[in-house]
């Protein structure tokens, strides 16, 4: 009897142990989750979320006397009560943004440049992506690599290369001006012009358009085109009625990938553009590194963020409705 009782007890203990084991294991799993997700979460909260909030807070402040920010509260004991300086929170920077049509114009111009860049990238990238997707498998990877490779060279160098090509001493400039001269038109400068900005923008962002297009086009079923041909569709109809509608999700994601960075770009107009070719990015840069009006710079950055969010939302919506249309 004692033996049996003992046996029962040990069985019970084993069960208990097993239960403890499971509990311990889930506790351990939770610990693991904490250790894996915790550090990146903390890091990005501190160095991404908090700075973004700081930027929003900054947009409601007054600029400081010597740039930067005015303190939130007026110094309580101060020998010199600074004249005309204001403290606390304000909508001044926002008012300033909406009071001058100049800023709306620069935003519009940035949108126009982004739209033009996106369109040119699309026209250049589409045939390339189509060709890659229809090439033999072993060729495809090489062709994609060749698209990405220049993209790996330094960003500034890619812009700088166009300084050489479009510069006044370049062969291209001589050639164009010789042709223009023969036609009796006054010579032009290619560099430091809106044209140079556009070329630079397209050059820097072209791979962003090719890759999503290729990823989409590669998945198309060639049988669809055969079927269209059998049904008597011309080459143009096959493209316009079959390939193009199917590729719309790729077009929209490529467009978002080009449009968004172009909207915030300051380096290209800074290097290739003239004094009049200022875009949002240059305006923001000047507020922080030039005139040092932080509140106004923050307002501009927030406006840019809102524009980017709107564009990203729009692209996602278009892509979804394109897919939806296909399903029906």
């Amino acid at each position: 009897m004692t033996k049996k009782a003992e046996q029962g007890r040990t069985e019970g203990r084993a069960e208990e142990r097993a239960e403890v084991g499971i509990k311990e294991r889930t506790a351990r799993q939770r610990m693991a989750k904490f250790f894996v997700a915790g550090p990146p979460l903390v890091f990005l909260t501190v160095f991404f979320v908090v700075p973004s909030l700081i930027m929003i807070a900054t947009s409601f402040r007054f600029p400081g006397e010597f740039g930067g920010l005015a303190p939130i509260a007026a110094p309580v004991v101060s020998a010199h009560v600074s004249q005309g300086l204001e403290y606390g929170f304000t909508l001044e920077a926002y008012q300033f943004f909406f009071s001058d049509i100049l800023y709306a114009k620069i935003f519009l111009k940035s949108f126009a440049v982004a739209a033009a860049t996106t369109l040119i990238c699309l026209v250049m990238a589409y045939p390339l992506a189509l060709l890659i997707s229809r090439s033999k498998k072993h060729l495809r990877n090489l062709m994609v690599l060749l698209v990405v490779l220049p993209f790996a060279s330094n960003f500034l160098i890619r812009i700088y290369a166009w300084m050489i090509i479009l510069g006044p001493e370049s062969g291209l400039s001589y050639f164009i001006n010789a042709v223009l001269g023969a036609l009796g038109i006054t010579p032009i400068t290619l560099l430091f012009s809106p044209f140079a900005v556009l070329v630079g923008m397209v050059y820097v962002h072209l791979p962003f358009m090719v890759l999503p297009l290729y990823t989409n086009l590669e998945k198309h079923d060639p049988a669809l085109l055969d079927a269209a041909q059998d049904l008597g569709a011309t080459r143009w109809q096959r493209f316009w009625r079959v390939t193009w509608p199917l590729s719309l999700p790729g077009v929209f994601s490529g467009a978002a990938l080009v449009f968004i960075p172009v909207l915030g770009m300051f380096a290209v107009p800074d290097i290739l553009g003239g004094t009049g070719d200022i875009l949002i990015g240059n305006l923001i840069k000047d507020q922080f590194l030039g005139t040092r009006d932080w509140p106004f710079g923050s307002v501009l950055a927030i406006m840019l963020t809102l524009a980017v969010l709107a564009i990203a939302g729009l692209a996602a919506w278009f892509a979804r409705s394109a897919v939806g249309q296909r399903a029906t």
């Binding site: 990146p40 979460l41 990005l44 909260t45 160095f47 991404f48 979320v49 908090v50 700075p51 973004s52 700081i54 930027m55 900054t58 968004i260 960075p261 909207l263 915030g264 770009m265 300051f266 990015g281 923001i284 840069k285 922080f288 932080w294 710079g297 923050s298 950055a301 840019l304 963020t305 980017v308 990203a312």
Partner: peptide, 20 residues
């Protein structure tokens, strides 16, 4: 948190970090 900094224009991250 992980993917937004990649998708935004770089200038926004630069500016907010500068202020921070």
């Amino acid at each position: 948190l992980v993917f937004t900094p990649v998708a935004m224009p770089e200038i926004l991250l630069g500016v907010s970090l500068l202020l921070f």
